[in-house]
Amino acid sequence: MLKNEKMRHQFKTEVMSGHIVEMMVAPDALAAKISEAEGAQAIFSAGYATSASALAMPDRGIADFGLSLERCRQIVNAVNVPVFADADTGYGDLDNIKRTVESYEAIGAAGMFIEDQVWPKRCGHMDGKKVEPTEVLEAKLRAAKAARKHDDFLIMSRTDARAVYGLDDAIARSKRYRAAGADLIFIEAPQSVAELEKIHEAFPETPLMANMIEDGKTPLTKKEDLQKLGFNIVVHPNTLTYTQAYAEKTLIETLKRDGSTKAYKDRMITFPKFNEFVGLDQVNARDAEYSPEKMAEAYMH
């Protein structure tokens, strides 16, 4: 089975298993590789982290399709766990949706979500969001399903209507999105555990995703508790971005204060350990494998 097929199959199997899938948002390939090494079951290539990492900008619809696709592709190539993609609003109309789906499927993503915000969108936990009429995302979901080549490339609907029209409207929209073909449902930014429960009651048979964002609208809830509440995927969207930013800030403060990084060294990975982690020994071994002497010995006699 080729890697792309394996990743799609693995993600679908895990999401449908009844056990909650822990998905880390990775700002870049290195963060994805670290997440994989530490046990993340899946990686999410998502807009907030990509905007921050690639542009040092907020998630306000500035990071475009090409940039987001390339970042997701780098992550897919760096890991062996499934990678799910944040496709924002699909980046345009139905023609754009087709290209977006074909492209993410071709690079080996396990699936993607599209949302009903008005472009340029905002992070789901920011104020001032606007949503399109329900028909807009319904049409996009039908186009997305028609464009995908494999049924196990999962399409998730995301609604941001909770912040605009309340939870009942968000649930009603999501039911229509499900009917239009969404495999998975994501209602962004519910505001209490009771709302999380209500979402599960509305979708007892449909895989659901919960978004655990620090300082966001939804109370931080443990993975085990989310599973009990009926959620199938928990995603940590900003954890690595905030941790990286904090570490870099405090390191530079230390450097400026002390004139060296000595006092910070116990919070860094070491030179040999980092090289080991990124596979230097394997790369060197491969380099040596094709030496002129070995090639002459094996193929020129």
Partner: peptide, 19 residues
Amino acid sequence: TTPEDLIGKLRAAKDALEN
């Protein structure tokens, strides 16, 4: 390039292929 280098590149390319 030399035959040795070319063969090395061919073998490397073959080892890289997934399909």
